[in-house]
Design a protein around this nucleic acid. Structure first.
Lengths: 275, 275
DNA sequence: GTTCCGCATGAATCGATAG
DNA sequence: ACTATCGATTCATGCGGAA
């Protein structure tokens, strides 16, 4: 079994990405700092400057991605002056000019949206998961993310589903459901482009931008074991931990030293011990 | 009780809208012909020409809408050449230049999406419901669309923690300004901006763009009885029938004579009989 | 061992107030 | 007039301790 590498790099993605080889990454998945938010940690990019700030980074991402690879961008526009700002729309348009293909837009339906009440809007309970590709012939392993057909099917297959589950959700991450028999697969259906996930709402620990199930789903869908995953705004490290568990090589970048140190300690503690 | 008017007009919205008074409509809700589809009925607008085709119409819609009114646009971009086309993004950007405010984007999650399988994408099970306004001070009747609390409440006996009841009271110290009655004995909550509606399997109608629950929800949310509702691409007439049932005045426009005749027969048959 | 209940908290937004 | 700060509002979830 090949050794899995998990790297965390400290610095500005715009610069650090330059050290990564051309056409070397299979999946980029990230949740960049949202405009004008996380002011304390990232400095807060103004919505009007957001596209200009992000485009040099997407240019590098385009370079390091394999032609068969995929870029998943988790983003949502803020309300500015009572309106949804259009920086995400402009970003998509500009990225296409760079050469990206805007293949699909998944919806992340956040089941536990932030509370609040306003006279003119409801709680925002969804975010965009934009899929970009370098070519039309990207790799996609649809069978890996098939879901049980429905509750009636779940009941009917309870014993077998349990066995399947232990493989599928195994935290050790060695091959999910690869050994599941064909007839069992027939009771599963392909998912849609709407993902229903709750945000992780930690009681005491600081939380991540997205729940582990989110990168897990896309890593299953777009990569195989020993493939390379990249998160240029890795933050608290969710993408790296999931990739490592699932036996994918991964690179995380973050500009905040505190995140860098925290992630470094948490990745691959066994290897550290052995060394 | 005031008489409710339900009008159906035959012709091109671009022209017919000119016969409607300035600032006279409370809610516009429509599902325009999608680019490159409905070829037999609408002539099939090519995605590249879509914005240019639609903008003269949105200009008229801006004129006829009251300053307190709302425009709900149900739309979804097609896949062209393996990519999501950007005409919807461009449309939003251009409509803002016309003076529209892009207040919000609701998601219509279609629970029973059209089946199918493709090698490089999953079933598309959502559409955009873009909310545009003429001014920030539009009317919104949020209480009309409140929904039952989530399942978690059932398990937890709907008992609110003391801290939730007093969280803000203790901060302000006055214990006076807060409306505690909102929290006590409450069983309903405000919805979010994600709507879960099944598409109607309607064999009888030619082209049911959306299920009745969709216009119903927005009519409840944005209008009162005797207000005026407009659908410039009324198709099989769903918007008109719902508006009439809910005692809202309404105007529907369609360019297809068959739709016009069909809708005309179905609206207010009692009045027709009396005449 | 279960179930029940209290508590903290989260990629938020509006309107008023202050500089 | 324009920008920065602050208080008020609100619901689903996971953890931890109690019954």
């Amino acid at each position: 079994m090949k050794e899995i590498q998990t790297k965390i790099l400290l610095g500005d993605s715009k610069d650090i990405l330059k050290t990564i080889e051309d056409n070397s990454i299979d999946l980029i998945i990230t949740s960049p700092p949202y405009a004008d938010s996380r002011i304390k940690t990232y400095g807060g990019i103004h919505p009007n400057d957001y596209v200009k700030w992000f485009l040099p980074i997407t240019k590098e991402l385009l370079r390091v991605l394999k032609s068969t690879g995929t870029f998943i961008l988790n983003i949502k526009e803020k309300v500015v002056n009572g309106e949804r700002h259009i920086y995400v729309l402009n970003l998509i348009i500009e990225m296409r000019k760079q050469g990206w293909l805007w293949t699909e837009e998944f919806i992340w339906h956040k089941k536990n949206a932030y509370p609040g009440k306003w006279p003119n809007r409801f709680r925002d309970s969804w975010e965009r998961l934009l899929q970009f590709n370098k070519s039309k012939k990207f790799k996609m392993y649809q069978e890996e993310v098939m879901v049980p057909m429905g509750d009636w099917a779940k009941d009917r297959l309870r014993h077998l589903s349990d066995r399947d589950k232990t493989r599928d959700n195994s935290k050790s991450g060695s091959g999910f459901g690869k050994n599941v028999s064909h007839w069992l697969k027939r009771d599963k259906v392909y998912p849609t482009n709407v993902l229903h996930l709750a945000t992780e709402c930690n009681y005491k620990n600081h939380s991540a931008a997205f729940p582990e199930t989110l990168p897990e789903w896309f890593i299953k869908l777009f990569t195989l074991e020993n493939d390379w995953v990249l998160d240029p705004f890795v933050g608290s490290g969710t993408t790296l931990f999931v990739a490592q568990r699932m036996r994918r090589n991964s690179i995380g970048i973050d500009i905040v030293p505190e995140y860098y140190e925290m992630v470094k300690k948490k990745i691959n503690p066994i290897d550290n011990y052995l060394l």
